[in-house]
Design a protein around this nucleic acid. Sequence first.
RNA 1: CGCGGGGUAGAGCAGUAGCAGCUCGCCAGGCCCAUAACCUGGAGGUCGUGGGUGCAACUCCCACCCCCGCAA
Length: 316
Amino acid sequence: MVFFQSKIVFFGTPEFAGIVLESLIKNGFKPNLIITQPDQPLGRKQKLTSPPVKELALSNGLKIAQPKNKIELKKIFEKDKVDLAILVAYGMIIPAEILKKPVYGFLNLHPSLLPKYRGASPIQGAILNGEEKTGVSIIKMTEVVDAGPILNQEVVAVDKNDNNETLSRKLAEVGSKILIETIPLYLEGKIKFINQNESLASFTQIIKRQDGQVDWQKSADFLDRQKRAFSSWPGIFTHLGQKRLKIANLSVSEGDFKANLKSGEVFLGPNSGLAVKCGQGAVELKTVQLEGKKKMTGKDFLRGQKDLVGKILKYF
RNA sequence: CGCGGGGUAGAGCAGUAGCAGCUCGCCAGGCCCAUAACCUGGAGGUCGUGGGUGCAACUCCCACCCCCGCAA
């Protein structure tokens, strides 16, 4: 049982990594050191906030390091000998020289069926593209990000109602499970590596606020996927004059009724709801929030915006 | 001192010194085969809190509390 004596370092930052870390701890893979991103000033008051992984590490009495840059990261690996590093959504690219430091290298849990959806937003990417299935992959990290050989992989179905959070949770749970199965086998040398087929690789980018803006030329169905993909951040929004209108909840009306309306035109939906024509189909905005205001139903919103019906929402 | 919006009837908003209003909801009545439609009437507000200036403050000034968007 070589892994019980192994010195393991865990790299991770957000909630997703927290779920995996918690599972590792419960199953006897208690890391000797947790490396996570530095605390960030968050919120209106710029409160210094710890990443979820740090909170979890603290409550489990684990040693924590929060290097601010690659130089500080290197120092950590100069001091200590490490057998294995496990990296899950850490948030910094690991320099090649550090990848070589642990005896057994770095394993990475990536929430997609590699080589598809490499990069920063695999979960959102899968939802946005309407994939019916995605999954998790464990790879051995190489210099090229997300391109290392695959140790294990498991498919996870994407539900029609899955959003970023719900799918992340599923993937984190399945990922934890296969990670726990795979680590011992890997350390005992019983794993066969499968090289990724580079010709099938696809990439996802870091999500920016702008990705949440609604383009009314797109189909209603796409908007629904966009809403689900970016549900935690940045959400989806459109513009009303100079102000941003966040769309917290919407429902899709399929088909091409209201064909006489222009894309982005506001009309009175069923039950006096707030509805908008899309490139294809239409959506009813169930819950909206105007900049500086509280969330409210589309119906309530219309009451204070009587001249809204007939206006055309723009995409900048 | 990061930037900014807001707190007025149950809900959403307008009003920016001189009787507190609109849409919806609610209550009562009417019309109708009928209705979420339409008509008539009605209830419901210490205009976030505390001070100040004014003959007069929701409105101007000061302080404070609360809610929210951006940024990160």
